[in-house]
Structure formats: C-alpha cells, structure tokens
Nucleic acid binder design. Sequence first.
RNA 1: GGCGCGGUCGCCAAGUGGUAAGGCCGAGGACUGCAAAUCCUCUAUCGUCGGUUCGAUUCCGACCCGCGCCUCCA
Length: 469
Amino acid sequence: MELSLRNTLTRESDVIGPLDGATFRFYCCGPTVYGPAHIGNLRTFVLQDVFRRFIESLGIETCHVRNITDVDDKTIRESQRSGLSLQEFTQQWQRKFTNDCQALNILPPAHEPSAVAHIADQIRLIERLIDQGHAYQAENGSVYFRISSFKEYGKLSRLKLSGIQKNASDRLVDNDEYDKESWRDFALWKTWKSEDGPNRWESPWGPGRPGWHIECSAMSMHYLGESFDLHSGGIDLIFPHHENEIAQSEAATGKPFAQHWFHIAHLRVNGEKMSKSLGNLYTLDEVVDRGFQPAALRYLLLSGHYRQPLNFTWESLAAAASTLRRILGHAEGVDPELLENAGDTSLETFIFNPVLEALCEDLNTPKALGVLNVGLQGLKALDDGAQQAARRDLARILQMLGLPWQFQKSRTETRVPPEVEALALQREKARIAHKWDEADLLREALLKQGWEVRDEVGGFEINRTEGNV
RNA sequence: GGCGCGGUCGCCAAGUGGUAAGGCCGAGGACUGCAAAUCCUCUAUCGUCGGUUCGAUUCCGACCCGCGCCUCCA
C-alpha cells in the first residue's frame, strides 16, 4: 500500500516516498506565537500529524520539522504591548501551543526550531542571494529579493505577476514601495526601526531582523537539506509565503526546494474564514470549557477532507463527540500491548483494509471514518474471535488517526458544584426508596441547571449537558 | 480585474458514466422503574438550464449562489 497525495505544485497526485530512499523529510510551517492558536490553526497541525502517523504506519521513516515563528511584526508588537521581552512573550505562547498539541495528541516534531535561534543561517542565505544578484540592499537599509531574477516565480500559486493586484487584500504592512526596485519584491532583511525597540540583530546590512519567508527557507534547509520531500502549511500560505520560499531557496541553491507541497484548507465558522475581525475565533480552551474533549475536536477535524473547507459549528462538534464516544465503546477491553508485536498482516481484516485504502487515496480521512463506521456495524453480533480481531483493527486505526482509545474521565466531574452534587445525591436516595416521581423531578431540576445525571450500576454520573462526553 | 475552490438528506460529509458511503439529529423497536447509554430497523435522486451519451449527480457549456488567495493570515 502506498499513499497518493495531491501536490499543489503539479496539481496532481504523487506517490509519497523518500527522495533519498531512506527517510522522508518534511517541513511544516508552524505557528506565530503571539497568542493562543485557534482551532483553524489546529486543523492544519492535526492533518499534518495524521499524514505523519499514516506514512509512518506504512513503514516509512520520517524526519518532521515544524518551526516556531517568534520574530515578526506581530510578536514584536504584542510583546511590547504586554510589557514582556520578546523572548519571554513568545516562550509563554509557545508553551501554550505545545500544551494544545499535546491535548490533541499531535506528535512532537523531530525538530522544532525557533526563527530567532537561526538568524545566522538566514543571514548566510541572504548573502548567497546578494552574491548571485538575486537580492539587493535598498536605500532604506532593508534587503529585498529581486523577483525579476527568478524566472519561475509564481509556479506554485500560478499567479502571473501581471495579474497580481497591488494590495488587493489590504494587508500591505510596509510602506516601502519607493525603496524597492519593484513593489513586488519582498523583504529578506528588515532594517531596524525605532518601534522595534530592543529587538534587533546585527547583520552585514546593519541592525535589523529577518523577513518571515527567509526564516522558513533557512530553517528547513538547515535541518532537511537543500532539497527535501515535502513542505506543508495552511492553504493561505501558498501565496506569498511558500511562493517566496521557493524563489529564495531555489535561486540560492540552484536545486529544487521541496518535492511536494501539501496544503490544508481552512476551517470555517458559519461559512466564513475564522478571523479576529469577524469575531469567530475559537480556541481549544473554549472547546474544553464547553465540556468537549480535545479528542472530539480532533475527530471533527478529520471528518472533512483536507483539501475542502470544513464548516465548524458547535452542533457538528457535538455530533463528532457522540460518534467518537460510540466508536470508543468498541475499543474497550483491547490490550494496548497487543499492538506492540502486531506488525503482521493478520490484523488486516474487513475493518482495517478499507480504512487503509481510503487514507491511501489522498489522505481521505472522512471516507476512512465512514468505512470504519460501516465496519463497526454489526460488530456485536460477531463471534468472540472475530470481535477480538476487529477490536485490534480498531485500536490500530485509532492509533493511525491519533485518536485516543478511550475518553478521559469527564473533566467536568471534579467541578460539580456542591449544590448540584447535593441534588443528585437526594435523587439517588429517592431512587433507592423507589420514589420515582420525586427522583424524576430532581432530575429535571438538575437538567434546568445544565447538568445531566445518568444512572449506572450501583451509582450515577453527573455531567454538563453541553458536550457531555 | 486575475487565479482558484465549492453548491449532495434538517445539520456535518464521502463518492461514482449505470439509478447516492458514513455520522449527528429524528422516528420505530429491544433493553430499562422512567431516562441515559447500548443494540437493531427506517429516512435524499445530488444549485438551475442546456449539450454529449443507450444512460449523468458524476463529462462539457451557460447561468445563479457561496467561499478563498492576489506581499508577512494555518
């Protein structure tokens, strides 16, 4: 079995395998750490994680690099606002990001470089570009990439230079167009300005800081070499970020940069892109505060194809939570150690194979989940042996998708207010005394307060009604 | 203006040139003091109009609607 994955560069599907025949080397553009990641950001990282888990499960060794962007306009601006140093500020958000990833069961990359820690690499790369005539220092002191020197510019996004409308997105940051040879040229090194405060690094072009694009080129080449297998990020990074990375990197090395480009579509809310200005940003903390487990979000994010926008609603999250809870019910009683020595094909049964095939077709996670559910139908009617085999399949699939084997005990359980607890206990007493009317009234009272009580053998459980998983 | 994506059951979402996976919700049943959970069963002709074809939701064209990118947004 091999994975065919759509390549943004060619707009065709390629079979995924390591260029060097040994290790699949890939780079993912990581977060800019100036605030909490929103669940749209997390979609990208979850899909990249599934990609990695899947190719590893196919027996391919990987080297996964995901950077931390800790120097740019936003990190500098926000750190100053917060009164912290850039380093203190970004480290705090990096820790938050790491926690979110952990909660979502995203594997840590093999290397997680910070842009600030690789400024020397970036400077060397810029020097190479200047030496070859691909970059120049302007009168304002900044260094720009000369787009006219790279004939293939636009090959990823397929935007023609002539068709690029100036500041079409109204996001133009620097008003430096008169300093550049062409307004399309982009900054490699930004000369220090007073508003940057203490955030400056020495360079052959004077104090300043690197441009965003050069950071990723330098870091990816540092860890993966001048040519590597795959580069990934959110779909919005195609232009200009990845286009510029290609231009810089290939102009400097004369070699192809990344073989394959893997882009993940956006998560939407109410049919629109998440953004601060629309006020429709959600974070993992908000998801958890509403009583959902991170795994439910992960399931939801997998329920749409990565090349298709996915519309987030609280209703769809609740649906994901319900489905996942049911699926995990089937995984109960599977010994995780069974998987340790399960590298054999005996596991490939009627459940496993269809899922594998779906994932091999351009990482079709929604189809995979669909056929998983089909496989699970009628499971309980099977004989013990078949059920055991099916459960091991399931466990292996969950591992591949990065889903947990069981939900954690409800996190809200410990936060039940005493008065709610008291009502529930009162109801339990009434039940034991077979005072059904009283018990039902108390249950309704609890429900009105947003708490649901469920009877279990020898006791009960209370949960928040929303996202009660 | 340029480039690109999409419109499939109430909601989410796959898919195919031969009459449409799956999930959630809902309905019915089993179970249960009643609920919940669980299990079983049921629920769509694919934006509009043309064309190609023996046959199109799937290919082509037009149109309508929604969305993304066009210099630092995942």
